[in-house]
Nucleic acid binder design. Structure first.
Length: 261
DNA sequence: AATAGCACCAACCGCTCGCTT
DNA sequence: GAAGCGAGCGGTTGGTGCTAT
């Protein structure tokens, strides 16, 4: 048996809200507050609407402190940074933007910011250089003829790589890369990082040439991460070790990053 | 002027979480 | 501990207006 519906769908109105309905809901909430039962609210307020619909209408549109449209550059940057750290946790991201709702931020991201990032000028499309990686699979790094050192930035600053056997084993056995330095606090990104450089043999199966299937969300996360960097880094590698972040680790060319002023 | 395609955004849907009984 | 319920969340859809052809 399925779950009981939250309202009688045959007897509730759907679609856009009329000014009268808005006024009724607003009047009711301003008088009685939002604390309590949203499911019972429409009946008490005299609205033929689903309680969930009332809640959404109030939170996303009628609340007095709501800001609509006109996202600032500063807000864009906050969204970039937070999305790169936590992915599509819209309510959390919105909580850092006074007057913005999760729906607003989500719509703004999906319709504008994502496109802006993936097609950004000046920085090449990170999708070209990043491989998809999945839980417990080996991260994929590009072939690196110049023995380039990569910096690794972790989504969770408290990540203890050396105490995480799965992650450490993966990183030290992939693609001929090796960890050459111990932990430090990255002076640019302000979170823990680790230098890794290439050595030994490489396997072509992990080469950048095979990196065409990156998912949309991973590409967006990578783009957001690159956008948040202060320098000219134009590519990086996302790594997901299943720690609960959109990506757990981000490898990038450290020479591209300029120190903060 | 007509219309096809696109962008935007409000609203809906289904799921999970957490609280209460 | 299990079941029931409401709140909250994120993904998706559909309507509307704008732009290009």
């Amino acid at each position: 048996m399925g779950r009981a519906p939250c309202c009688d769908k045959a007897n509730v109105k759907r679609g856009p809200w009329s000014p009268d309905e808005d006024a009724t809901l607003k009047r009711y909430v301003e008088t009685h507050g939002t604390v309590g039962n949203w499911i019972a609210l429409p009946q008490r307020a005299g609205l033929r609407r689903c309680g969930k619909s009332c809640r959404l209408r109030w939170l996303n549109y009628l609340r007095p402190d709501i800001k609509h449209g006109g996202f600032t550059e500063e807000e864009d940057n906050i969204i970039y940074n937070l999305y790169s750290q936590m992915g599509s946790r819209w309510s959390l991201i919105a909580s850092h933007l006074p007057g913005r709702t999760d729906n607003d931020v989500k719509n703004y991201w999906n319709t504008r910011l994502k496109k802006k990032l993936l097609g950004s000028s000046g920085k090449s499309n990170p999708v070209e250089n990043i491989n998809p990686s999945t839980h417990n699979s080996l991260p994929c790094l590009p072939i690196n003829p110049d023995n380039q050192a990569y910096n690794l930035a972790f989504s969770d600053p408290s990540t203890q790589l050396t105490q995480n056997p799965t992650m450490l084993s993966s990183l030290t056995n992939i693609n001929g890369y090796g960890l050459t330095e111990s932990y430090s606090l990255d002076p640019v990104l302000q979170h823990s990082s680790m230098i890794m450089s290439e050595f030994g043999s490489k396997t072509s199966s992990h080469s950048a040439e095979n990196s065409s299937n990156i998912s949309d969300s991973s590409a967006a996360a990578a783009a957001a991460c690159l956008a948040s960097l202060p320098g000219d880094a134009d590519a990086g590698i996302l790594m997901d070790f299943g720690l609960g972040f959109t990506y757990d680790c981000f490898a990038y060319d450290h020479d591209d990053i300029k120190p903060k002023d």
